[in-house]
Design a protein around this nucleic acid. Structure first.
Lengths: 190, 190
DNA sequence: CCATAAACGCTAGCGCTGCTAGAGTTCGGG
DNA sequence: CCCGAACTCTAGCAGCGCTAGCGTTTATGG
């Protein structure tokens, strides 16, 4: 019992090590630099060990994405609870969302742009993701009027996501960024 | 002179053939199925021929993206000019944009999601892209009020882009799609 | 305390990728 | 008719995700 639990604990630690190494490598050099060989070298195990923990590279990316969701939820919550009123809450949450995407581009991509084997728009979605979405919803609530809060929050999220990804992909000029965000918020909050 | 021009014409035809083959392959099976080997086989030339026309696979994708921009501009223009008033124009353009992304997912990705060596937010951007953006701008113009039309159109575009990509990536449930779009339009048009 | 079996991590390799060096062929110009 | 330039091909490089199968370590039952 004790020996088995020790082994399980060590396994869990190694799994966490893999996830952390993948995240660090991705954030430092982008996902294209995260190869199973480099990752294995970084955790000082051979390649096949990765596959005893994860079904494939996609699954590792998914695990990193879940971590990212938790971090995002923390940032959003901090921004929302620090705001003195509804208007500054939704503005602060928006800014925090943008800042997160800007500071952690690789993390953001694997969470919301890349295709990863994670359930998203279902009750089985990662709790951390649901928490992040919940923070957006609370910021949107004061402006929902008679509309569905869920659908309206989805719409709000999508706009932020579009602004972030088009800019980061070079499709939108960076200099108008704050203007675009304020134009959107002005229209969204009526 | 005549011989040389004939050769140049044949070269141009072959280049067009490569672009078309890449587009068809991508639209049929996705970009991950577009390998230089399959593409070469499809145009019935060897791999190195591709590199005498394009610097790399990225450049081929960029060429396909430019074609896609032209097609999108046509669709948007048709939707806008067919609308009897401003409100139905912006709604129709939005719906046409969504429909384009839905019908041509691989094309849409290479135009607006993937990283390709194309100038976007500059005067050197492909005229076809500028034309498509111009159609969005004309649809937005009646609702710009005192705001910058350029920045507002960028914001409008970003929202559509976010709705499309989050849904296609499985992050948003498909069933609320039309509701989300109408919620956005209602707030955007005031 | 030892033999056995299971759990474990390793080396080596498969089929693929984008890309390129260099050989071989074709063809227009003098 | 021959030469040189233009052109396309075969073959191969380094790297990718992933896995079969071997060898070692480790925990257990007699």
């Amino acid at each position: 019992m004790s020996i088995q639990s020790r082994r399980e604990r060590e396994r869990a630690e190694r799994e966490k090590l893999i996830i952390t190494a993948a995240r660090e490598l991705a954030e430092a050099e982008g996902w294209e630099a995260v190869t199973t060989r480099r990752l294995a070298e970084r955790v000082e195990y051979s390649q096949p060990v990765l596959y005893s923990h994860f079904k494939g590279k996609d699954a590792i990316m998914a695990a990193v994405a879940v971590e990212g969701c938790a971090d995002l939820a923390v940032d959003l919550r901090a921004a929302r609870t620090a705001a003195p009123d509804a208007r500054r809450a939704i503005a602060g949450v928006s800014a925090a969302y943008m800042a997160f995407a800007d500071r952690h581009p690789a993390l953001y991509d694997v969470m919301f742009s890349q295709i990863v084997p994670l359930p998203f728009a279902t009750p089985e979605a990662p709790p951390a993701l649901q928490a992040a979405f919940g923070e957006l919803a609370e910021a949107v609530r004061p402006y929902s009027g008679g509309d569905s809060l869920g659908a309206l929050t989805e719409t709000f999220w999508a706009a932020l996501h579009g602004l972030v990804t088009l800019m980061r992909g070079g499709r939108l000029p960076r200099e108008h960024h704050e203007l675009r965000l304020s134009l959107f918020l002005a229209r969204f909050t009526g």
